[in-house]
Design a protein around this nucleic acid. Sequence first.
DNA 1: CTGTTAGCGCGTTCAA
DNA 2: TTGAACGCGCTAACAG
Lengths: 345, 345
Amino acid sequence: MTKRATMIEVARLANVGTMTVSRVLNNSTHVSPETASRVHAAIERLGYRPNEIARALRGAKSKSIGLIVPSLADPFFAICAHNINTVARSQGYAMILASSNDSPDTEFAQAEWMLQKHVEGLLICPVSAAHPSRLGDPIFQRTPIVSFDRPLALPNVASVVVENHAGAKKGTQHLIEHGHKHIHFLGDAPDLFTIKTRHEGYRRALLAAKLTPGECMTCNSEEAVFDYLKRVLAEPHAPSAIFAGNNRISRYTFRALNRLELRIPDDIAVIGFDDFDMADMMQPPLTVINQPVDLMGRTAADVLFEKLRLPMEEWPEQESRTSLKVQLVLRASCGCAFGASTVEE
Amino acid sequence: MTKRATMIEVARLANVGTMTVSRVLNNSTHVSPETASRVHAAIERLGYRPNEIARALRGAKSKSIGLIVPSLADPFFAICAHNINTVARSQGYAMILASSNDSPDTEFAQAEWMLQKHVEGLLICPVSAAHPSRLGDPIFQRTPIVSFDRPLALPNVASVVVENHAGAKKGTQHLIEHGHKHIHFLGDAPDLFTIKTRHEGYRRALLAAKLTPGECMTCNSEEAVFDYLKRVLAEPHAPSAIFAGNNRISRYTFRALNRLELRIPDDIAVIGFDDFDMADMMQPPLTVINQPVDLMGRTAADVLFEKLRLPMEEWPEQESRTSLKVQLVLRASCGCAFGASTVEE
DNA sequence: CTGTTAGCGCGTTCAA
DNA sequence: TTGAACGCGCTAACAG
């Protein structure tokens, strides 16, 4: 009905000074039990809640962190955000969210703006590293930053990623074991860390088997994948298997192959990096490299809050780099014939 | 490196009062062009950025809104969040996010806590209406609230939903036109507005065709759907078609039917409410009632910002209720035999 | 057109 | 153990 009660009103009602109220709220040390209970009663009666804004202005603690992802509409990032948020809330922190839409300028603008909002720390999945990141700017030196999914080569930024190289290598090796000699790699953005690293893992696997690796093909849409496959499958040395660089590409590939009326894995085999919902229900079920999506967000948040606990002087010279394990989930699109999914470390 | 510059420093450097700096930053009216440019230069040189916290403490404008969803991990809500965030950013607002995990207590706690953070407005997808919502509490009277996906029967809350009744009715009618006489309805939470309304639409369609509608079955997991279908399909009057109350149930149903080695739509037909990624790539492609997910978030945000523009005195007596159109997307699981999807208004 | 004064609500001195 | 006064950075009133 009326405006919210302030600390002064509580103090008056309890016949104490505002300082006492403040103490009861925070330390609760050096306050006699009976005074404290009087204060509590007053708080109750007035429905008083501390004004977080005023708190933040006074001290340096805004009790909020910022999260910037390329796009929340992407289920992968949505799950990351979900887990980060869970950790944040458990620590009493608010999470402010923003999308960079894969634009370095937007990313920088959002990050800078979050600093104005006095977030205590920043969690970022950085945009493609085509341009040097401006997240190393001096204004960010006093704010802990953790990057995830894609690392940031900056001294002040910790990072959490998965074993992209090893995972892609293992997946490709599996394809080779199925007898494939011509395997193509499809990505969306060749400058993207994840895609680049996965392509490198793929390359190593082929080289080790004395086979010729292909380029990292850039296919940004279902149409692009369709056109590419249609063209290349008509050529000599047509691929007999596809390695899809991420789950979006996997889905595009599946759609394109369907339109081309090709049978998986008989006409062409497929393995994709990153599992997705219903991948096991496709016809055929898709073999994938599974990344620990839940763990990724949680770990990144944990790393950030760990840094938040440390005073700035104690920040490590070199920030931590965490790498999460991935698994090869064998289903049928690779050529295996399992009833259910099988997991290989 | 050093602490951020404050307004006073800018003022000193530009040889003006802080008020002038403030004016340049906001109105920029009643300031001589040359003074303004001196101020701008000083701002530039110091890399000054206004402290949003102080601004928020001073005025009532925190330039932030709160969003509470049952779970960000759900793609449906992730997309809503994405669109809401886009609108918010375009208005210069930050979005604070929280999940209620379908708990009324958590929902209330998060909402209350957001008020402490002085959000200017709240967007909420309310938890199941099993318990009367506490969002009508007096403390929320001064804060505009918009609920989406599920309405809230409170005078101070506007809402944006889709045509659940009409959509479910149309889908069920379609099943009836295919000759089905025994159609079962599967939901997850019978008290949920969306599920309840869709079940009602389903019931009306059957009644209108002089058929007997079934209960709203509660199936909270793939296991539950599996057990239910296994049992009921062995009984007399076994269903020849299933109406799935939302996309999660659709996926469960698809999985369960697969495990039961039943053919869709020959052994049993399926229609689901709410489309999802790859639904058109399943075997067979799933016929669904498609809701305008993108529009939902955007509309809800628009409604909120409209309210934010109005002074409290001008708030309408009765809050707005928006209902978004849905479409029947015909694929193959209903019994139709299309090459591609067909859309019916 | 511009500067001065006075808080916003809290927590941190320092004195009682 | 407690309270008074000051100031965080900014802007709404009022002068000038």
